[in-house]
């Protein structure tokens, strides 16, 4: 999107919360193709608040996946495996 196109966008969205819910179900893979096409194609190109929300939602998901994962400690993994083997041996 270039600067000129940005300038022509609406700066208010009368349905911002509803749009946000729809946007989230699209990103969650829970929206229909029709909802997706309509929103991503038409609405995002003309609505600044929703355009910004879209990028914010995507960025938060990226950050969550990058920063909020944890590896199980190896000694714990080994001990769980060991206990299961003992269980089977009984």
């Amino acid at each position: 999107m270039n600067a000129n196109e940005m300038k022509n966008m609406k700066h208010d969205c009368p349905h911002q919360q509803e749009c946000l819910q729809l946007l989230q179900s699209i990103l969650d893979g829970e929206a229909t193709q029709e909802q997706k096409d309509k929103f991503m194609g038409n609405h995002l190109e003309e609505c600044m608040p929703c355009y910004q929300n879209y990028h914010l939602e995507v960025a938060i998901r990226d950050l969550l996946r990058k920063k909020c994962a944890n590896q199980a400690p190896q000694d714990l993994v080994d001990s769980i495996k060991q206990k299961v083997i003992q269980n089977l041996a009984r």
Partner: peptide, 16 residues
């Protein structure tokens, strides 16, 4: 009121 740019500064444990 949160902007994508401010997320870029959250390189530590902020989101966690």
């Amino acid at each position: 009121d949160l902007r994508v740019e401010s997320l870029g500064n959250m390189i530590g444990d902020e989101i966690s």
